[in-house]
Design a protein around this nucleic acid. Structure first.
Lengths: 253, 253
DNA sequence: CGTAGTTACGTACACCGTACGGAGTGGGGT
DNA sequence: ACCCCACTCCGTACGGTGTACGTAACTACG
């Protein structure tokens, strides 16, 4: 029998090697690294088993000795990206600052690997590096005196917000990759359509909004503000009082 | 020339018919409806041009008379789902209640069409029904005295939160669709792996959390709480005071 | 030293999106 | 009234995908 039995299993628990036959030419990590390299360079759609094999210099079907299904490869890629988090020795004691740093790290990683926003379907699975991330986050949140479930909630919401933001930014760029015209043209055409619709008078509130905020705000600042606001909503005492309107934005590390 | 020139265009602006030749056998909406039916029944991956054509009883390539590219079909599907929002004659005046209702509607729509969470990449494009949604949302927010940009922010975050939540719930189910074993088995195997990892002692905080919240909280309540908390963070006066801890949760319409 | 369990991988299959071109159709311009 | 041509319909074909299966080579264990 060549293939392994199709039994339920988690890719993380699958042993990489069972010591009997000839020694493998690559490691599972080699395969994942190649996939990540391709995705970084040419987008996630360029990651095909044949392409990986070609880059690695082996037969296509050999890859299936390292990865049972392509979907598992995606999980492994996300885990590989999650390995890029850098944590200090211990939490600073200021959970708000720590969570802010985490959010900025997440964003940086997603910028480094634009395919992440497409592949990372669930907020977080339980890959080794996801567990590491979760453990660290919970450590940061020990000073915060709220029920455990709420902490998970906070983590999920911070992650979700960062993911949604970045995904939003990247969606059009990724879409433009497969389009027979340039991203700028696409953006122009869509903008023109929007303007036309708004000019039709059917959307007075939207028109008012566009008139008021003619110059779109700095996305960087929006991100910081959103994050700050989100963390506020988990602060037991409430956001009132100490925080000024343009106040003390926590900067990335 | 059979095909239309590959010029930048928005699918919403593309005229459905240009009155010259024989009258089409279907409308664009027919095609979209068929796609939605298939996606509802057999998942988004079952939506192929051949399958749609088969369901419609026409040749595969005929579909390209109605939809220029398959990706546009996705946009049309999202727009079709967005048409399911039901808005009262006018906002209630209580923006918090209105936004809560919107969030619950979004969630309901995503439950009705489990493929939405996979297809709706960007928080919101500018499809006709997305504009309608946006216009209504802004109308609901007129009582809220904050800068226009912040209102957009609020809308985006509410949407993002709902999407993230539902996506999270549905990710495994969708994944299980293509797996050679059942979703229950998958869940069991993953749960077992998680328990094994936690039992290893490498994740003390996570272990503590799992011990504390042995019975996972009701997702329904979590959703309501998260939403409430999020809206709090946009309330100018701050959440302090009037809201009790277990207090007045707004129920879906 | 077999031999059983692995690795490597060529071939093949089913399916995908869609480019292309030909046939049939019917409305608009003359 | 006519014809022309834009248009709809769609069969065929191409280049791509994930991966099941079978065979050959290899190595650690009994």
């Amino acid at each position: 029998m060549a293939g392994r039995a199709a039994e339920p299993e988690v890719i993380w628990a699958r042993p990489e090697r069972a010591g009997r036959g000839p020694r493998p030419a690559f490691s599972r990590q080699d395969v994942v690294d190649a996939a990540v390299r391709i995705a970084d360079a040419d987008g996630i759609d360029a990651v095909s088993m044949r392409r990986i094999a070609a880059d690695l210099g082996c037969g296509t079907m050999s890859l299936y000795n390292y990865v049972p299904r392509k979907e598992d490869l995606y999980e492994l890629m996300v885990d590989a990206a999650s390995a890029e988090y850098v944590f200090p020795d211990r939490p600073s004691g200021d959970w708000r600052a720590d969570m802010t740093d985490l959010a900025y790290q997440t964003r940086a990683i997603m910028y480094r690997h634009p395919w992440l926003s497409r592949v990372m379907t669930t907020a977080y699975g339980f890959s080794p590096n996801a567990l590491r991330y979760l453990e660290w986050s919970l450590g940061c949140l020990t000073p915060l005196d709220v029920p455990a479930g709420l902490k998970m909630q906070l983590i999920a919401m911070v992650n979700g917000t960062v993911m949604a933001t970045v995904r939003n930014e990247q969606a059009m760029a990724e879409r433009a990759r497969g389009l027979p015209w340039s991203e700028a043209e696409e953006q122009a055409v869509r903008g023109a359509y929007l303007m036309g619709q708004v000019a039709s008078g059917r959307y007075p509130h939207l028109a008012a909004l566009l008139a008021e905020a003619a110059a779109p705000a700095d996305p960087e600042e929006i991100f910081a503000l959103t994050l700050s606001r989100l963390l506020d909503s988990f602060t037991p005492t409430g956001p009132a009082g100490e925080r000024g309107d343009a106040g003390e934005r926590v900067t990335p590390a």
